[in-house]
Structures are given as C-alpha cells and as structure tokens.
Computed example of a mutant assay.
Amino acid sequence: MLAPKLSPHAPAAQWKVTALGGGHGLSASLQALRRLDTDLTAIVTVADDGGSSGTLRDEFGVLPPGDLRMALAALCDDTEWGRTWADVMQHRFASRPESARTLDRHALGNLLIVALWEMLQDPVEGLRWAGSLLGARGRVLPVSTTPLTIHGTVLSQSADGALSSRAVVGQVELARAAQKGRVTEIGLDPAGAPGTPEALEAIMEADWNVLGPGSWFTSVLPHLLLPDVRRALEQSKAKTLVTMNLTTDTSETLELDAADHLDLIRRYAPQLRVDAVLADPTSVEDVSRFREAAHRLGARVFFDRVGQRDGQPIHDPLRLAAAYRDVISSF
C-alpha cells in the first residue's frame, strides 16, 4: 500500500527544514515552521516509557507513539479540517470510575498510529498514512525504528550535605529523579541503534536542521546520542539552528543556565557545527556567558521575543515563525 503523493505540479518550497526533538518542544517548533515556505520533516525521539505511550510500548512491542502523535497534530493547518483532526488525535478517553479503565487516558491518536503499524508492518509507512489522513503539512519520522531506553546518572545532596549519585533507567524515572538532583550523564540503550534511513536522508538533504526547544535531556540531546544521527548532523551541508527554551527552570535542568544548555550540546556532539542560536532575551540570565557558549559552537546568537504575550513560558507560533524566518533569511 502506498500513501498518496503530492501533485507533481505543487510549487517547490523555499527551504528544506528538518526539526528534531520530541514532546511539547518539537510541537512548538513545528507549529511555527509549517507557517513558513518549507518542505518540513519532523524527526522524533522514541524513548518515552510513560502514560499511554509506555503502556502501548509494553503491550504491543511498538515504538512509543505519543511524541509522534503530537508532531502530526502540530502539522495540521489552521483550517476546520486541520483543527478538527488535531483535536481528534489529541483526544484522551476518560473511563467511568466503576469500569475496568482499560482505555482510560489513552490518546486516540496513539491507538490510530499503532493500528496502522499493525496493518502495514512499517512504522514509517504507517506515519505517512496518518499524515495523509490529517492533511499534515510535512512528514513525521521516528529517529530510529528501534524503541530506545534512556538512562542517566543523577547527583543528589542529602539533608546533611552529603553527595551521592545513582543510576536511573527510563525517561519517566530520569525526569522524576532530576527534580531532586542534577543529571550528570545520559545515554541510550541500545547505544548503537541505527537511525531511520529516511530520517538520516532528511538530515543530509536539508537546508536547515533545527534542534530544540524541548526537555533538554529527554527530547533534545537523545538525538545526539545515536551515532548515525550525530554523524549525519555533523556531515550534512545544512545549517544548524538551536532553539532555546523559554525558561531554564525546568524539572530536568534546575541548576543549569542557558549557557550550560549550549555546553551540553558541545559535550555530546563536539564535532557538530551550529550556525545559529535563537533565544528569547528573557530566558538568558548572563548574556555575555551565553554568547561565549554559542561562540564555542561556532554560532551567531539571535534574540527575539518568541513567548506568549501573557508571559507564560510557552512559545507563540506566530512570533516563533517570524523569528525563524528572520534567522534563516539572514544567511
């Protein structure tokens, strides 16, 4: 079975853009990038082990579908069709308290994606069909077709001041442990899992590869931990843009400032050339230190107001789209 193809008479996009990440951060960048004249590909982490995704992963032995679902929903356009299907994909069932609750909190989009995977026996093809149904303005690919497990080391301090470190396995456990300590190391199992060929091709053929925003340890950095993906990012002739979070005060990064976030990219991908870093000025505590960290990556710094006007630490799609356009157009 082949998914519908675009008309050969469709006009070519101005830029080929590949966005890498997961969860709400990737959703934010996709909602912005789809508003530009782009041939857009989303490459999504597959290490989630919590909630509906974790349950489906365990019961069916599939990739966790949740972040892939969010990416598809983000690519739905602002027509009645697009808004309706985005809501359908994100809809979660609420079981009656007296029931067996087998579907409670499952997202319908997760079930749809798993159904397509079972029918087609191909994760990439299943996501292509889901995107066609939604009229998604871009394609969504898993970073690997191997389900991944993230692990890390967390340094904690007890009430008497003693320091101790412990190994943590799983995305949910790592995020929970990070609330009480500092993540000092992360890795993936299997460490040498191959990148999805279509994802590697998209990275190599892009004009721009975009990393972030998102949970730094569980959505952004995991892409750099897969050798195939890191090598593709390093060897691609595309320019690389890092989008910073609107706050560093997250459960994963309580003791890290904006400059530390950039230094982590350099730590896990020392050969990666970064061309641009986009940040909201309100999210950078020490501008001089931040510029120095960006310089170590080889990047120019762009400051722009990209958060919502009410001050919530959520990216505004229109503001972020305008900022992306300005950054890309400056090269």
Rank of each mutant, 00 (worst) to 15 (best):
M1V: 15
P8M: 09
T18P: 00
G21Q: 01
G25E: 04
S29H: 08
S29P: 08
L40T: 00
T41I: 04
S52Y: 00
S53P: 00
F60E: 10
V62Y: 02
P64E: 05
P65T: 01
D67F: 08
L68Q: 03
M70L: 14
A73G: 11
D78R: 14
Q90Y: 04
H91A: 13
R105S: 05
G109C: 02
G109H: 00
L111N: 10
I113A: 05
I113E: 02
V114T: 11
G126P: 03
A130S: 04
G135F: 02
R137L: 10
R139F: 07
T145H: 06
T149A: 06
I150C: 08
H151R: 12
T153Q: 13
T153I: 14
A159D: 13
A159E: 14
G161C: 13
R166P: 11
V169K: 14
G170I: 09
Q171Y: 08
A177R: 01
A177C: 08
R182T: 14
P190K: 09
A193L: 04
P194Y: 10
G195K: 00
P197N: 09
E201P: 09
E201N: 13
I203V: 06
N209L: 09
V210C: 05
L211S: 00
F217L: 05
F217I: 05
L221V: 11
H223L: 03
A232M: 05
A232D: 06
A232V: 00
E234V: 14
S236F: 04
L241M: 08
V242A: 04
T248K: 02
E252S: 04
L254P: 03
L254D: 07
E255G: 09
L256K: 10
A258Y: 01
D263Q: 06
L264T: 03
Y268C: 12
V274C: 08
A279S: 13
P281V: 07
V284A: 02
V284R: 00
E285Y: 08
S288C: 11
R291M: 13
H295V: 15
V301T: 09
D304E: 15
R305S: 09
R305F: 07
Q308F: 06
I314H: 13
L318G: 10
A321V: 11
R325V: 05
V327W: 05
V327H: 06
